[in-house]
Structures are given as C-alpha cells and as structure tokens.
Write a protein that binds this DNA or RNA. Structure first.
Length: 626
DNA sequence: ATAGGGTTAG
C-alpha cells in the first residue's frame, strides 16, 4: 500500500491583505472574534489564502474556551493542502476537546502523508499531550518510537512532553526513567515537569528533595511546590514556602496566591490571610474571579463573614465558584436564611447549581436545623437538577434529620442510599442517638462501628456517652476499659490563636507556653467569675473514669479555655478574640465561653471542627444548636 | 507563523 500524495498547487496570493486580518492568534481569544475574522476572510474572497486560514486555526487552538470541533474541522477542510503548521494546530484543537483521541487519527494521517506535510518537532509535543489526555498509553509509546526513529530523541521540548505523558499513562517510575535517560538534555522545564510528577503522585518528600536539588528555580517551580503542599495537606509548609517565594523577590503568580490563601483559610489564620491580601493590593495584582473567590473563602473560614460579603458584593464578574463559596461561608457561620436567599438569587440569575452548591445549601439547613427546607432542597437537587447525591449530601441530611430528632428518617435515608454509606454517616447518627437518648440503636451502631474500625477511639467515646446518658455506668466503664486495652488512636484536641504575628497553639492541660503562669491565673479568675454567675459545670461530656473534682479540672483546662485565657491577656475590653479548634466544642466550654464574652466584654469567635460560634454578650450565634 | 511546566475554591 502506498500513501496518496497530492500535487501541491500554487497558492492563490491576493495583492493586499487588510491589516486587521493579520493580528496574532493570541489577540483573537474569543470564538466570536475568530468567527468575525473568518467571515471577513470569506467576504473578501481570501479563503484560498492558506496562511490566513492557518492563522485562524492557530487562534482556535489558543482560544479562551475549547473550540467546537465541527467548526475547527470545517476550517481545516477548506484548505487545499494543509501545511504541517495548520495540521499541528488542528491536533491542538482536538486535544483540547472532549475527544483527544481524534488527534491520534490526524497524526497517523500525517505519517501516511495523506497531506503534503510531514510531522515536525512541534507535532510530537502536541501528539504526546493528546496521548496523555486520552490515556492512550500504547499509542504514546509508539509515538515515542517514531520520535527516536525520526531523530527527535534529543529535542528537549519533546523529552519534557514524554515525561508528562509517561507519568499520566504509566506512572512515576516510567517518567523518572525518561528524566534520567538524557542527563544533558534538561532545562528548567524538565525539572519542573518531574517535580510536578512527584507532587501529583503525593510524594511530597521526594518533591522537596528535587526542589532543593534543582539547579535553578523559577516561579513555576515555586508554585508547583506550594500547590503540592496545599494539596497534600502540608499547610504550615505551604505558608513557609510562600515566604520563601517572597525572599527570592519573584513576583508570585495567581496559583501561588490562591494556594497560600487556601492554606491560610484552612488553618484559620486571619492575620496571615490579611497579610497576603495586603500584598496582593500592594502589588496591584489583578483580582481575577479565582483570586477574588479565594479571598472570600479565606475571610469566611477565618471568621470575617462580613468581609466576605463585602468582597462578594463588590465583585464585578462572579462565576459559579464565587457563589458556591459565599453560600458555604454563610452556612458555616450559621446564617442559614441568608445562604438560602443567596441560593435563590443564584438560581434567578440563571446559574445552574453544581453538586458543591447543594453541599453549601444543605449544610446551611443542617446547621440551623431547618428540616423542612433541607428535605425540600435535597429533593430539588435530585429531582429537578438531576444531581446524584454524594456522600457529603447524605452527610448533611443525616446530620440534619437525626439531630433534629428524625432518627428513623435518617436511618431510612442511609439504608436506601445508592452508594455504600461511609462509616462517618453512622458516626453522625450515633451522635444523635446520644443527644436524643436512643440507647438501643446507639448501642447497635456503636458496636458495629467499633467492629468496623477497632482502632478509632472516637467510636468508643461516643458509645460510652450513649451509655452515660442512660446512666449505665457499668457499661461506660466496660467500653472505656476496652478502649484503653486496645490502645486506640485518640484524636488530640488543639486550639490556636494568632497574636503579635505568631500562632499560639494549645492542647488540653498545656504547660508549654511562655506565659503559662499568667494563663493559669487567668483560668482561675475565669473560674471565680463564672461561679459567681451561678453556673456549675456540665461534666457529662467528660467521661473519664475518675473523680468528680478531677473531671472539672479536665474541662477547665480544655485547649480552647487556654487559648481564650491567653486571648484575654493580649486583648482589651471590646476587642475580638478568635480561636480555631480542630474538634467540636464541648457543652461546658460552650456555656463558659458565653459567660466570658459577657463578663470580660469581648466578642469571641470560635471555629470548631464543624462550624463557627460567635459569642457576644452572653449569647452564641448557634443558639446552642450545633 | 506553533512548542513545554503550575490551574486552586465546599
């Protein structure tokens, strides 16, 4: 079989090409602009001008949103003899589409010389990208063979594309082999590509090592490392990395700013987040939709919901993420009515909600105990919008229903789930059994959970709380003993507070802080003033097998008490104390914090493991429902 | 005339 090779015909060359038609591909970024230019080309009778059409294809390949394939193909078909440049650009259009495999067909037609062109060095970088996206491993390996056969084996661009391709289709070891193969054919991008492979593989230690060994680092190296830290949950390292970027004097890019804001948000470090915000302003960095959304998210998660609202209201072009983040932010602050109102506005604006939108909406309902609304939106999601309920949606619903007392309905929901339920759902239900005193069901669930994960200390604690609620003390002791015999993992509670440019982290009974004496004196003062109000501690949440007095000491030294005591030392009347806690607050700490807010005249904002509590003048924004 | 690396957020 031999390939069909048409005879090239002389290109029709018009004498004069109007200037606006010759703008660079990246200047035509929207499809509308491209189509307008195309129309002018047709009207002016320049359709046989290959260079213009090739330009048009290049614009399509680079356009802002992925170009529609029928249109790209139509442009390509209007060539008599598409050049390799035009073909390369069509390959890129295919790669950006939903069917990147079509790039491969086009490439093989290049190999068969169906057109006058033959593949060049550029072609391979594009085709390898397509293989990576289409997960076409064996095809990509064949392309690799062609690369070697046709003498492109030493092209650094192609080698870099090969590293990405092998990672995507064959894993880290294979991409590593390509990286190691030609030690001399490496540039900064080669190192960055390999670095990204380690990050994507979750091997953050190996990534760090590579980052340190790199001969040089640019802003992409830093942003790869920083986003890697955030994605792998190494939040403190991410902050350090950000200050590393600052030291180099490099101008951060958007990914760096968004990621460091995400780390600040997750840690709840308002002062840090504010510092990043002020840097963004002082750099005159453009506030894009994603950067704006990150700021809204950061302020919400750091307790400044008012600031989030302000930024949201003044945001010129809000995309769906801005709305999602704002709705979730309101939800975690317990502002359910506002969150639902915003959701309705979102719908009125013609946006279509995503599954994360409903996580925010359902969360709002569950935080505020809006059972009727929760049922409505859950139904709306699945029936009107055809969104499959995911684990998080079920989590919200189970929490909402069971905490509001509809335990049977929650059980029914779990039993009828289309996906297999996460043990977290049962654990949620167990918590509700404790609140509502459903001893038998709680016992059943608790034992099941312990059987499922015998090392999880939390399940034992919950089950013993269920027994304690029923005053079955022997059972409490039995479960406690089982727990200590099995040496289960205990989630260590901590609380942190920012002051004087530093993060102060406390665990229960902590004695490590430099102002430990003052802090414990403050705790005593709190104890005295609280006792004066007539409050006596609720010890049901502390179920250690020890005497009453010791129990009281234990709660009095819970990590958030220490953080708040320290907060009282470094603030004045009328100031705000912000505490971040990893676990949920206990009933007693919640009561005492209310009293502190009144007696010491402070606003106290606590972010616990599931939501925000705003304590002011003796009341909490959660209205004791959490 | 075209290239390659990082695309976050509940």
């Amino acid at each position: 079989m031999f390939a069909y090779k048409p005879k090239p015909q002389p290109e029709h060359k018009p004498k004069h090409i109007p200037k606006p038609l010759l703008c660079l591909p990246q200047h035509l970024s929207s499809l509308d602009q491209i189509k307008q230019t195309h129309a002018r080309i047709i009207v002016l009778g320049l359709t046989r001008h290959g260079k213009l059409l090739a330009h048009l294809l290049a614009s399509l390949a680079l356009s802002h949103s992925p170009p529609p394939l029928p249109y790209s193909l139509a442009v390509f078909r209007s060539f008599d003899f598409p050049s390799v440049f035009a073909t390369n650009n069509l390959i890129r259009c295919f790669t950006r589409s939903d069917s990147p495999r079509q790039s491969l067909a086009l490439y093989s037609s290049l190999l068969l010389r169906k057109f006058a062109a033959k593949p060049n060095n550029h072609t391979f970088t594009f085709v390898l990208q397509a293989c990576a996206k289409a997960l076409a491993g064996s095809e990509g390996a064949q392309v690799h063979a062609h690369v070697v056969k046709l003498g492109f084996g030493g092209d650094v661009f192609i080698r870099n594309a090969l590293i990405s391709f092998y990672y995507g289709c064959f894993g880290l070891e294979c991409s590593r082999r390509v990286f190691d193969e030609y030690v001399r054919v490496r540039d900064l991008v080669t190192w960055n590509t390999m670095l990204a492979c380690f990050v994507r593989d979750g091997q953050i230690g190996a990534a760090e090592k590579m980052f340190d060994e790199m001969p040089e680092r640019d802003v992409v190296s830093w942003s790869t490392m920083l986003t890697g830290y955030v994605q792998n949950g190494c939040l403190e390292e991410a902050l350090e990395c950000f200050w590393g970027v600052r030291e180099t004097g490099l101008r951060p890019n958007e990914a760096i700013l968004v990621s460091v804001l995400s780390a600040s948000a997750q840690l709840g470090l308002l002062e840090h987040g504010k510092l990043v915000h002020s840097l963004v302003d002082s750099m005159n960095f453009p506030i894009t939709a994603s950067l704006g959304t990150s700021l809204i998210d950061m302020y919400a998660k750091c307790g400044c919901i008012e600031q989030s609202k302000l930024l949201f209201d003044n945001m010129p072009r809000k995309d769906i993420w801005a709305w999602n983040v704002m709705i979730s932010g309101l939800a975690m602050h317990g502002l359910a009515k506002e969150a639902l109102k915003l959701f309705e506005k979102f719908i009125d604006k013609g946006f279509s909600p995503a599954n994360v939108t409903f996580v925010g909406v359902l969360n709002a309902c569950s935080r505020a105990g809006l059972v009727r609304e929760g049922r409505h939106y859950f139904k709306l999601m699945t029936e009107n919008y055809g969104i499959q309920a995911e684990m998080e949606h079920y989590g919200c619903m189970v929490d909402l229903l069971s905490r509001a007392g509809f335990v049977d309905e929650a059980v029914e929901l779990i039993e009828n789930m289309k996906i297999s339920p996460d043990p977290v759902l049962w654990a949620t239900l167990l918590g509700a059994c404790k609140i509502h005193g459903h001893i038998e069901l709680g016992e059943k669930i608790g034992n099941k959970l312990i059987q499922l994960d015998p090392n999880h200390g939390g399940h034992y604690v919950q089950l013993s709380s269920v027994y304690a609620k029923a005053r079955k003390w022997e059972e409490v002791i039995r479960v406690r003993r089982l727990m200590s015999e099995r040496n289960t993992n205990k989630a260590i509670g901590w609380s942190l507070i920012e002051a004087q440019g530093k993060v102060h982290k406390f665990v229960a009974g902590d004695k490590d802080h430099e102002r430990v004496t003052e802090i414990y004196k403050m705790l005593e003062l709190i104890g005295t003033l609280v006792a004066k109000t007539g409050y006596s501690p609720n010890i049901s949440s502390v179920l250690h097998d020890i005497g009453e007095e010791e129990k009281e000491t234990m709660i009095r030294e819970h990590s958030e008490r220490l953080a708040i005591a320290f907060g009282l030392l470094v603030t004045g009347v009328g100031d705000c104390i912000r505490v971040v806690k990893n676990l949920r607050v206990c009933v007693d700490c919640h009561e005492v914090t209310k009293i502190i807010s009144k007696v010491f005249e402070r606003e106290i904002i606590v972010r616990d493991g599931s939501r925000f509590h705003h304590f002011k003048e003796g009341k909490c924004s959660c209205r004791d429902f959490w």
